[in-house]
């Protein structure tokens, strides 16, 4: 019995590993039969989040819509995979290369090869750290500082420029947490009656958002809180529970603004709990191929193309939630 038990256990031990491996995405390419049309190579980071999936879908859909041939590669969060994909694009002589770099550094060699091959490069969503600016044509992506600004501007308007604010920050040291705080404070500097009285990290999660909000509400200043600014929707959704538990009405007693605009945020707005969310838009497809077509037509393109930070409120939430894809 023991030998059998041991062998079957060993087999079972290998199972999760197999599941993990098979769960990973494979590089894919869509290459419909072609008349001489634009060929674009896109090297994606991976499929690590809903946001990223929506980002990839948007790019694939837009390419199909415009009849552009897209060579799509998934780097599974590894820089060496992305390097390989970029060299493949050179070999395939695509017209334009676009990519979201996994990390900021280490791109100089491959970008120089691409430049030598005369292929223009477009960066999406994340920037690279290179000494030679001519290595890429433009960078398309959201501006976290701008998102923070938009959140503050909306809050100023909604509260008549008078608010006692608590802030739930993102993961300490992360770019969105730093920039969203910076943008928000920039606007607050011009509003004397709007003050952040407490600010603490909720680590971008629902559970921490709720726990930290509980602490804010029970502090001596807790009763004076009139507004909450959360660096992402999930923390705001967690905090809503804490506000209800404290016997106050989220969305009314405490005005709540957050960032990202995921589907759950729209549901919270429909319920009247959340007041506003600023979109960090993953649907870069249209902007990307606008730039690609402009480059192909030898038209000038801006160095930095900012994805607009659209502000959503309760007014339109009931309609928006129906069409939300992520």
């Amino acid at each position: 019995m023991h030998r059998f038990a041991r062998r079957s256990l060993l087999a079972a031990a290998l199972l999760p590993a197999v599941m993990l491996v098979s769960g990973c995405g494979k590089p894919e390419s869509s290459a419909p039969a072609a008349t001489p049309k634009l060929r674009v190579g896109f090297a994606q980071i991976g499929a690590e989040s809903d946001w990223r999936k929506a980002n990839s879908d948007s790019i694939k859909r837009e390419a199909e819509k415009r009849g552009i041939e897209l060579v799509f590669s998934d780097a599974q969060q590894k820089q060496e995979n992305q390097n390989k994909a970029l060299r493949n694009f050179i070999a395939q002589k695509v017209d334009v290369i676009a990519f979201s770099p996994v990390v900021e550094t280490g791109w100089e060699p491959v970008l120089k090869e691409i430049k030598a091959a005369g292929i223009p490069v477009v960066l999406t969503d994340r920037a690279v750290d290179v000494s030679d600016d001519s290595l890429f044509v433009t960078f398309i992506g959201a501006d976290f500082v701008e998102e923070g600004r938009q959140a503050a501007l909306w809050l100023a308007e909604a509260t008549g420029g008078k608010a006692t604010i608590v802030e739930l920050q993102g993961t300490p040291g992360s770019a969105p947490a730093i920039d969203r705080k910076k943008g928000f404070e920039e606007v607050l500097a011009t509003k004397p009656d709007m003050k952040i009285i407490k600010s603490q990290s909720g680590e971008f999660t629902r559970a921490k958002g709720r726990e930290v909000m509980e602490t804010f509400l029970k502090s001596p200043e807790g009763a004076s809180i009139t507004a909450l600014y959360a660096h992402n929707d999930d923390m705001a959704i967690g905090a809503i529970e804490a506000i209800k538990e404290a016997g106050r009405t989220p969305g009314k007693d405490i005005v709540i603004v957050s960032i990202d605009a995921v589907k759950a945020a729209f549901e919270a707005m429909v319920a009247g709990d959340l007041n506003c969310t600023v979109e960090c838009n993953p649907l870069l497809g249209p902007q990307l191929f606008d730039a690609v077509e402009a480059i192909a037509a030898k038209k000038p393109v801006e160095r930095r193309i900012v994805t607009p930070a659209k502000v959503y409120t309760q007014k339109t939430a009931a309609e928006d939630v129906k069409t939300r894809v992520y």
């Binding site: 999660t205 629902r206 967690g238």
Partner: peptide, 16 residues
């Protein structure tokens, strides 16, 4: 308890 607390399952962060 974790699921009840946030009225959701957050597989990425629960019990981290």
């Amino acid at each position: 308890i974790d699921c009840a607390y946030i009225r959701a399952a957050d597989a990425n962060n629960a019990g981290q």
